[in-house]
Design a protein around this nucleic acid. Sequence first.
RNA 1: GCCCCGGUAGCUCAGCUGGAUAGAGCAACGGAUUUCUAAUCCGUAGGUCACAGGUUCAAAUCCUGUCCGGGGUACCA
Length: 540
Amino acid sequence: MKLNELMENFIQEYLDKNKIDFDDWSINQSTQKGFGDYSSNVALKLTKLLKKSPLEIAEEIANHSNNNKKVFDLSASKPGFVNFHITNKYYIKVLGQILTEKKLFGKHKKLNQKANVEFVSCNPTGPLTVGHGRQAILGDMISNILTWKGYDVTREYYYNDAGKQMRVLAESCYAKYASQVGVEYKEPKNGYVGEYLDEIAALIIEKHGKELTVDNALFRTFTEKEIFKDIAKSLKRVGIKFDVFSKEGAFYKNGSIDSVLSILKEKNLSYEKDGAVWFKTSDMGKEEDKVLVKSSGEPTYRLPDIAYHADKVDRGFDLIVDVFGADHIDTYPDVILGLKCLGKRTDHIKVVIHQFVTIKKGGEIVKMSTRKANFITLDELNDELSSDVIRYFFIMRGANSHLDFDLDLAKDESEKNPVYYLQYANARISNLLARYEKEITENPKIDLSRLIEKDEISLIKLLSEFPQKMEDISESLEPRKLATYLEEVAAGYHKFYGNRKVINHDDLDTSFARKKLCEAAQIVLKNGLSILGISAPSKM
RNA sequence: GCCCCGGUAGCUCAGCUGGAUAGAGCAACGGAUUUCUAAUCCGUAGGUCACAGGUUCAAAUCCUGUCCGGGGUACCA
């Protein structure tokens, strides 16, 4: 049984025995030293009900019969906490478990459930920016976390290959083409102007000659293909691959957009006004109705989004995660509403919203716009920093906080990036283990209970928390928490390493036990780093 | 206008489903090194948790209001 269950049972037994019906209590890690490893507020919460002083209740609970003396001792402390002191014996047992389970330690067994994670999903109108990078890495790590949790994960990229944006892109590309072949053509209003389009135009000339006219479909298809190639390349450089690409166009072709419209109309949830089709969102608690089909006859993004999500639901995933930028905060509820109106299941959809990245360059905040081409690309970042550093950089802040990305500082600080701290801990262990094998050839008996020093036990304690940590993270979908945890593990290891000599010819039994602890620390570090998609080199 | 996020050490940020004496990294200062890889460790200093009310045995954490900063807000996606 898990540790937290054992502790919960202990308190529950007390409540049952005294016929107290009460469940508003919890057990938390103790923040203060000297009060055990975990503590419960149950006594404090019970004061009103029992009309006794909290300390008195706490003492009563702490003193009631404990069937788990091998796992924990108890104490009560002011103002009324029940403290659990976990025994070394228990930790030693977990250490043995880590060493046996190795790569599987903390990993959930197969759930036989499918999860879909949609992320990046930006239209192929230009290279990926640093802003997209945050989402790419966040989504990738969330996918890893869900895989670790036991899901079969599909990574999906959805984009619009059919709308106005792509038309403007095609025309912008033609404008570049025209200027290169010496034909007069006015650039479209709000067109794209980035240099990448010059290159694509040149490529079109090279492959298809100079005689093309503006209505040639190549300017759309070729450009889309080229830009997409580029996007895929940028993603690959930070270790990201997608399983499925869904195109908006497909939902026009297979009729699902029409069918969404007709269902909504049938249910009297849409109406026509000013030549447009409106979604009666105001009937469902929204402030105003939203447009589904513009008066031009073109749907807004909302409609295909609903059709696309309906398709995802129909594909039978047990969990659907959408990773969106902050601009979707107002819009995704419409999509969910749409699904509900179609009678689709929505309770298994999780939306992770991340705030935007603001870029500083030369001390100035850069307003990013793909259209105006004053963006910083993920590739530029990649040219300067390693994939490991980039991955870590993006999740060092919570997704829900703005990320001020100072490009100069990132380069400057890449040497100080905490990712090296983690990697160094791992490299240190590798080196030590190799050295151990070389120097000590005897095979002493395994006696892990020789680990009794404070720094040893607290390291094991940290390691033992890994499975629960992953459990929490797979709920909250916050990779940052894993990074923070791994930093603690690395710190715990470095501390242990500084205090204790592992290789000691005069005490082989202790040496061996310590070596085992090093192995366990490495197991947890490597497992964690693999989830973050960060390498664990054995030498640095 | 409406919506979202943030305001915690000099700087960058953790902590926020309420719990005990508010943490880490960087920067500053002092120490440890014939190294099991110092990309490390130990210590010192640094705080009115934006402000004001409220709820509670208990508030950085929850509620209300105010101020400041960032972002979003189309018949663009």
